[in-house]
Simulated scan of single mutants.
Amino acid sequence: MKKIFTLIALCITVIVSAQNFQGKATYKTFRKVDFKMKVDGENSAMQKQIQEQLKKQFQQTYTLNFNKSESVYTQNKKLSAPQASMGGVQVVIAGNGGGTDVLYKNISDKEYLNKTEISGKRFLIKDKLEDYGWEMTSETKNIGNYTCYKATRSREETRTSMSVTDGKPEEKKEKVTVTTTAWYTPQIPVSNGPGEFWGLPGLILEIQDGKLTIACSEIVMNPSDKVEIKVPKKGKKVNQEEFDEIMDKHSKEMMERFRSKRKSKDGNSFSIEIQG
C-alpha cells in the first residue's frame, strides 16, 4: 500500500511539474535587403546613410516566453538614435510597432493575437495559426548545447516594390518562391518558435525565411522569475486579411505624402527600390 501511495505522489509531482513548465528564449533578427537607389545631382553619401539606417532597423532582439501550449513574443526595447535628415529622406519600416508589438500564440487552439500599432493607432489581429506543412529531414546541427533537426517549406508569394522617380510613385509586383528553413530541437518538446513560426516537435531555434534570419542567442529553462503569459486585449479587433488591407492603404498614403514633398523640391530624379 505504501508503494502505491509513493507512486501516486510521484505521478502528481510529474503532472504539476509539467503544468508549471516555462522557458525563455532570446532571438536576434537580421535581414538582407536588396537596396537600389538612383539620385541625380547628389553623391553616394545618402545611399550609404540609408543603408546604415535600414541595417539598424532590421537588427532587433526579441524574447519568447513560453509554456507547453502558450507563448508571448515581444521586441526588446532599446534607445533609438536620432533620425538623420539624409537630404530630407527618412526611412520608415511600415507596420513596425516601434517595440510595442505583442504576439500571443495558443498552440492548443491553433490561433494567435497580435497587438500592433500603425501611426499611433492600435490594432488587435486575431486569426488562426498557419499550417506550415513542414517537410522533415534527418539533417542535424548543433546550436549551443542543443541538437537541432532541419525542416523546410516553400511558398509562392507576390512581392511588391515601390519607387519614386521625379515625384511619381511606381509600384512593381512579381511572383517569387520563398523557401523557409527551420532548425528545431526535440530536447525542448514544445511546438513553438519565434514570431508566428510553430508546428514542429521541438522549439525552433533558428529560422531562415527568404532574406530574413532569426537566430536564438540564449535559452533559460524554468527561470526563477516567472513571467505571466497574458492574452493581449486592447486594440481595434481585425483578422489578418483585414489588417493587410489597412497596411496596404497606409503604405500607399505614405508614398503619396512622400511624392508631394518631393514635387515641391528642385525636381531632381529620386528613386528607391527595396525588396526582400
Rank of each mutant, 00 (worst) to 15 (best):
T6L: 15
L7I: 12
L7F: 09
I8Q: 09
C11P: 00
C11F: 14
I15C: 10
Q19H: 11
N20D: 02
K24I: 06
K24F: 01
A25D: 00
T26E: 11
K32P: 04
K36H: 14
G41H: 08
A45D: 06
M46I: 14
Q47C: 00
I50V: 15
Q53K: 15
L54R: 07
K55L: 14
K56R: 09
Q59L: 13
T63G: 00
F66G: 08
N67E: 05
K68E: 07
S69F: 09
E70G: 01
S71I: 04
A81H: 05
P82L: 13
M86W: 01
G87L: 13
G87Q: 08
Q90H: 02
V91I: 13
I93L: 15
G97K: 07
G99S: 09
T100W: 02
D101N: 13
D101C: 06
Y104I: 04
K110H: 06
N114F: 12
K115V: 02
K115F: 05
E117F: 15
I118Y: 12
S119Y: 15
F123W: 08
K128T: 11
E130C: 01
E130F: 11
E130A: 04
G133L: 03
G133Y: 00
E135W: 08
T137M: 10
S138N: 14
N142C: 00
I143S: 07
T147N: 07
Y149C: 10
K150H: 11
K150D: 03
A151C: 05
R153S: 00
S154V: 12
T158G: 07
M162Y: 13
S163R: 08
V164F: 03
D166N: 14
E174Y: 03
K175A: 12
V176I: 15
T177S: 13
V178R: 15
V178E: 13
V178N: 03
W183V: 04
Y184Q: 08
Y184R: 08
T185G: 00
V190Q: 08
S191R: 12
S191V: 04
E196S: 06
E196A: 12
E196I: 13
E196N: 12
L205Y: 12
I207G: 06
D209I: 06
D209Q: 04
K211M: 09
A215S: 13
C216P: 00
E218A: 14
V220H: 01
P223W: 10
S224C: 02
D225Q: 12
K226Q: 00
V231T: 14
V231Y: 02
N239F: 00
Q240L: 14
E241D: 06
F243H: 14
F243E: 08
E245W: 10
M247I: 06
M247T: 01
H250R: 09
S251H: 01
K252W: 01
F258L: 04
D266H: 12
D266G: 10
G267A: 00
N268A: 11
N268Y: 14
S271K: 13
S271P: 06
